[in-house]
Simulated scan of single mutants.
Amino acid sequence: MIKYYIRVSTVEQKLHRQLLAYKDADITYIDKTSGKDMNRPKLQEMLTNLLPKDIVVVKSLDRLSRNTMDLLEIVKQIQDKGATLKVLDKDIDTATPIGKFFLTVIGAVAELERENINKRIKEGIAIAKEQGKYKGRKKGSIELKGESLNRFKIFYKKGFNKTELSKEFKVSRSTIYRWEKVLKERNQI
């Protein structure tokens, strides 16, 4: 089945150019929202309903996503379902070796960008530390004691899962795992 995805950034923008670009679709999905993230109803509906051997068609890659990481995630979801992607303006078809190669290059660029971002973050933290502006999290700022400790034990014994506990205590799940480990070592839970 051929599924044509169309996206314009606002309700006021016209769909004509994309509608005229491809007329052989079995189903057309239209989102009138920004491509800054993947939270688009018709995109999610299309991805959810993909079947093996379906073909997803877009006029251009920026219609699918404006973010390289999201684009790769969307393409991965398409491929994981056994479907393929066809991009009209670049003549890319992931059913072909050239199309697969193109996506590999995009993936490599995205990975490089991730590494550069991480490097810049570490450099920024190092500079801030040298200037005395970054000291990390306050020691003990998420320690479990007093009334919070008693509440945690009660909720833990009642079977709350890690996600529920992290929401209740407004800390990360990794903090919940750390608390659990410490309290087990102390034989308090």
Score class of each variant (00 low, 15 high):
2 I>H: 06
9 S>N: 14
10 T>H: 13
10 T>S: 15
16 H>T: 15
17 R>Q: 11
24 D>Q: 15
25 A>G: 06
25 A>V: 00
29 Y>T: 01
30 I>D: 05
31 D>A: 06
31 D>Y: 10
36 K>Y: 13
36 K>V: 12
37 D>L: 11
39 N>G: 02
40 R>V: 07
41 P>E: 15
42 K>L: 14
43 L>Q: 08
45 E>W: 08
50 L>T: 02
51 L>F: 06
51 L>R: 14
54 D>S: 01
55 I>A: 02
57 V>E: 13
59 K>T: 11
62 D>Y: 07
70 D>C: 04
72 L>Y: 05
72 L>R: 01
73 E>P: 00
74 I>E: 08
74 I>P: 12
76 K>V: 00
77 Q>M: 11
78 I>N: 02
78 I>P: 14
79 Q>M: 05
81 K>W: 10
88 L>Q: 10
89 D>E: 15
96 T>F: 10
96 T>I: 01
97 P>V: 03
104 T>C: 03
106 I>D: 02
108 A>L: 08
111 E>Q: 14
112 L>P: 00
113 E>H: 01
114 R>W: 05
117 I>H: 05
119 K>M: 09
123 E>W: 05
130 E>R: 13
135 K>W: 12
136 G>C: 13
136 G>W: 13
137 R>Q: 10
138 K>D: 12
141 S>H: 13
146 G>H: 09
149 L>F: 08
150 N>M: 06
153 K>Q: 12
153 K>M: 12
154 I>R: 13
155 F>Y: 15
157 K>V: 00
158 K>W: 13
159 G>Y: 15
160 F>K: 10
162 K>H: 12
163 T>K: 15
168 E>D: 07
169 F>E: 08
169 F>H: 10
173 R>I: 14
173 R>C: 00
174 S>K: 07
176 I>E: 07
179 W>Y: 12
181 K>Y: 10
182 V>N: 08
182 V>C: 00
185 E>G: 02
185 E>M: 00
